[in-house]
Nucleic acid binder design. Structure first.
Lengths: 411, 411
DNA sequence: TGATATTTGCTCAGGTTGCGAAATTAACCC
DNA sequence: GGGTTAATTTCGCAACCTGAGCAAATATCA
């Protein structure tokens, strides 16, 4: 029964673990300088963490020999706990695992036919997870202190009760098999989160992620946290209208970005212009060989994309834009026109403050994001029970800090 | 010296006060059901709040006579404390005041020439504040437990150190005069926050606010909190390109929404089309009289606006869109075309989940938002001291809950 | 009318957490 | 070996949360 006090303690533990994660090995003294807690409390917490095995004394003795007693350097125990994330994409399952230090220890994927029943997809995921943890040498899967699984799924997540896609059942299956809570979100959004932590925008707090794949979508990271929107419908960049007179889109609209910038749209346009490419690798090959038709097409597509990104930038003000998905493999042939168009339409004040980057995580991004979901939401799992009878919500009062921050907010 | 424990306590006090704010008078028992704290703790906190005068027993005796001892109904003491907000607009100063119950107790405005020095504008603000608190009968201004002033200013706020607009000096002047901390943000953004609390989107957690005035701008409320963006540049909807071949804009770009939907742009276009109107009221009058030119123009402008809003909706997923600023006074003549265009370009899944509304707060919105800034950020003022030597930041781990929430996050 | 049940308001003892001050330990320097 | 310095540990106290239990006020029942 997690009361407010245990929560406070847990928050402080998270704070200390977070410092170790970001700074690497640290002595107790250095830790104390950064965490804002009193030495006594910090030592108490550290003793607890050491006892639990989450933190161990670093073996390296590269201490800059000072005058007094040498400080013991502490570091996270890389074997103490793991978290896994599973991305149930349309035609494949991806899994990934990280250790307590938030270092990726492995990932695996396996394609499957579209429409495979949830039972079999869960079975497949479980097999991949076994392979991962086994290969890592551990044997039995240990979820450690995190005790939750993150899941990425296709389609909007987070809306009210309806469950058209069977997500609730999926969560049930996973809970049953792994015996731990399951957290889920849209896999493209999770890819955005992953890129903001391990990928092209590591450490950046405000990220706009655009994914150009069979579908076109994306996600927003706001203040370091994933943005979901009112009905879990945030990040649908692919269905922004770029040409009201354009082609019909599966979503019911016309001239959506997806009808211009999806894989199929680009390949169709390429073939219509006389090019020959059956899939993205062939298109990439053509681009590498300097095919003028391909380059011209990508220039046009990139220009459209850049216009949409510029509008979003002005509205949302991210500091990094990440472009991912298979089409991003065409590299500068696509990114340069995007950047040109973006620069032309964005506000001049913002222009040199936004950086456009290509995604770095590839197909594991969704699974990694699912892990991040667990790591970020984990304190949620220990919150004290809800009233339950009515959806009582707090207004937007900012939560208490768990870590020092500068109170001098300059107006 | 506010340690983590005092903060915890303060958080719980805020929680209880927040419940009273939103639900109005409540008995201890009802309060207990919602706050998730143990009865003992709750009673302790309430005793403290009653002793401090922040909470008083409600005089009304409309208790639904139950079986046992009748419950004492508690309510916020409307005279216990006040907060003030000041909006330093380009050509006017607006001030507003609220009591602890977050009820607006008064507001006042006074126009002034553009470019007035900060000293005189602060002087003007102080005079307005004196008038307000005096008129309310109180006499001396009491800021109560809040002890901070919120300020709205023109231009981006929240970026790094540079201070081209003299905001730092303004904060200094206000701190000196009122002797309390000063919190500031962009006034249009603050208007968005105000609309999400007291205005057209009361209680809504995800709001997109668009302001059509001399400039065109807006703000985003995400999860009930104001969104600032990486460099304080969020909400610049006015500089989204709607027509790359359009007119030059002051921002340096071309064809920005502001070149189409600002007051001057609309009036110019109206006159160019043969209409006669020197200012917005005259335009509104023409609209009311069914002037076909005006209606046609607004239809076109609204259509442009709707297209931009649709794109933003797909990306951000708000549940309410609020349109404010002087031009919104043209009413349905503008809102209907906006809604049509919005509905046509938004994703069908989202269509009936987004509601478009006209702002309700008028010119006081900025000042009210400044108050909200103080109310929302107030816990910040009591956070424990920072390390100061380096900008140590926590990653995006969600903060601890101060209030019950449903831990069952359905995937 | 009086007894009982029920709900509410409140107190008390106990456990946990955080923190300041003093004591202890382990190195270095002379 | 003795002194110095800094890291670590111990100790005692204060603040906070909580469960249990008691008193107060009222409705219901005999």
């Amino acid at each position: 029964m997690p009361g407010p006090l245990s929560q406070l303690r847990r928050g402080h533990e998270e704070l200390v673990l977070g410092l170790l994660r970001r700074h690497g090995p640290l002595s107790r003294g250095e830790l104390g300088k950064h965490c804002g807690l009193s030495r006594t409390t910090l030592y108490d917490i550290l003793a607890e963490l050491v006892a639990s095995g989450a933190v161990v004394a670093a073996t390296q003795q590269e201490a800059p020999r000072g005058r007094g007693r040498p400080a013991e350097t502490l570091t996270l125990n890389p074997d103490a706990g793991q978290a896994i994330g599973i991305d149930f994409a349309r035609r494949a399952v991806h899994v990934a695992a990280v250790n307590v230090a938030h270092e990726v220890v492995g990932s695996a994927s396996e394609p499957h036919p579209a429409g495979l029943p949830w039972e079999e997809r869960v079975e497949l995921a479980a097999r991949l997870v076994r392979g991962l943890t086994g290969a890592h040498g551990g044997g039995a899967l240990r979820l450690g202190a995190l005790s939750a699984i993150g899941v990425g799924v296709v389609g909007p997540v987070g809306g009210p009760g309806d469950d058209p896609k069977g997500h609730d059942r999926l969560a049930g299956l996973l809970r049953e098999r792994f015996g731990v809570p399951v957290l889920a979100d849209n896999n493209t959004r999770l890819a955005a989160l992953a890129e903001s932590i391990w990928g092209a925008a590591t450490g950046v707090e405000d990220v706009l992620y655009l994914r150009l794949s069979h579908g076109v979508g994306g996600g927003l990271v706001v203040g370091g946290a994933l943005h979901r929107g009112a009905y879990g419908l945030s990040g649908e960049f692919g269905h922004i209208t770029v040409d009201p007179a354009g082609a019909r889109c599966d979503c019911g609209g016309s001239g959506c970005l997806e009808t211009v910038a999806s894989i199929r749209a680009v390949l169709d346009a390429y073939r219509a212009a006389g090019g020959r490419a059956e899939d993205v690798p062939e298109l990439v090959k053509a681009v590498r060989e300097g095919d003028a038709v391909a380059l011209g097409l990508l220039r046009e597509v990139g220009s459209r994309i850049g216009a949409v990104l510029a509008a979003l930038c002005n509205a949302i003000g991210p500091s990094v834009i990440v472009v991912g998905g298979e089409l991003a493999e065409t590299g500068v042939a696509l990114l340069e026109p995007i950047e040109e168009s973006l620069g032309a339409q964005i506000m001049p004040v913002t222009r040199n403050r936004v950086s456009l980057r290509r995604a770095t995580l590839g197909e594991a991004a969704g699974a990694l994001g699912a892990i991040a979901l667990v790591l970020h939401e984990s304190p949620l799992l220990s919150r004290y029970p809800a009233d339950g009878d009515e959806g009582e919500r707090r207004p937007a009062a900012p939560d208490r800090a768990e870590e020092p921050m500068n109170p001098a907010r300059r107006p």
